[in-house]
């Protein structure tokens, strides 16, 4: 019986169309590196009948078509895949410009109050950290980034917002992230970036990949407006 430690995941049933390959540990760069390497190995194995491979922080969900592939056989294949130790794609670094506070980050003041810091200290702490992309999800291209400096960690907002602006930079728990599109959301909004993190234009692409690193640097409203014009001259054409 595999325990999920080391390179071998524990293979758990997730209904009759998916298996969850779970690794021990929580939000941890070493664990997530194993997760990404394992997800790459599952994709490289090109198992007929596998229709989706979704890495999370500490697990990989493998979806399959039960008409084409037997779940028990897939579980056996997945249980033996850890040995390959494949190399993940090379990591890249993204330095993201953020206009903090004001209309760009309507929760910045509340975050400062709740953490007992000044607004400038919140910005300095958030922009002073190097984050790892652990996985993508929630909405297309949304990067789950960790770990936030301990002094900035707050629970999610009690009531989620129905409308969060595209490019909003937000924090919750030990995570920070970037909302790719206008959507609902329950995290604290501290700023906005003009950078587009997802494009529906073919070939569809996400700016970041798991394993990449991200840092943030503050910009003023004038720079935000200029970058927005430069990055998206059509004015939101990436929204599909």
């Amino acid at each position: 019986m595999r325990t999920g430690s080391g390179p071998y995941p524990q293979v758990l049933p997730a209904g009759d169309e998916a298996l969850l390959c779970a690794f021990d540990g929580g939000i941890d760069p070493q664990v997530n590196a194993r997760v990404q390497a394992y997800a790459a190995a599952v994709r490289a194995a090109a198992i007929a009948g596998v229709v989706g491979v979704v890495p999370g922080y500490h697990s990989v969900l493998v979806s399959y078509d039960p008409r084409r592939l037997d779940g028990d056989e897939l579980a056996r294949i997945l249980g033996d895949l850890g040995e390959a130790e494949p190399r993940p794609e090379p990591a890249r670094h993204h330095d993201i410009p953020v206009c903090y506070g004001g209309d760009y980050g309507p929760d910045l003041g509340e975050v400062a109050a709740a953490t007992g810091l000044t607004v400038d200290e919140v910005v300095a702490l958030h922009a002073g950290e190097l984050y790892r992309v652990y996985c993508l999800g929630f909405s297309p291209g949304f990067p789950y980034l960790a770990s936030l400096p301990p002094r900035l960690r707050l629970p999610r907002r009690a009531a989620p917002r129905l409308e969060v602006a595209q490019g909003s930079v937000a924090i919750a728990g030990l995570q920070t992230g970037i909302y790719p599109f206008q959507s609902s959301g329950g995290w604290h909004l501290i700023g906005r970036t003009p950078v587009r993190v997802f494009s529906w234009l073919e070939p569809v692409s996400a700016l970041t990949r798991p394993g990449d690193t991200v840092s943030f640097h503050p910009i003023d409203a004038g720079t935000f407006a200029r970058l927005e014009r430069e990055l998206d001259p059509a004015g939101g054409a990436s929204g599909g």
Partner: peptide
């Protein structure tokens, strides 16, 4: 409560 986010199967 919250756990580290992970892939969601249909019907979860």
């Amino acid at each position: 409560g919250d756990i580290p986010s992970e892939g969601t199967p249909l019907g979860a």
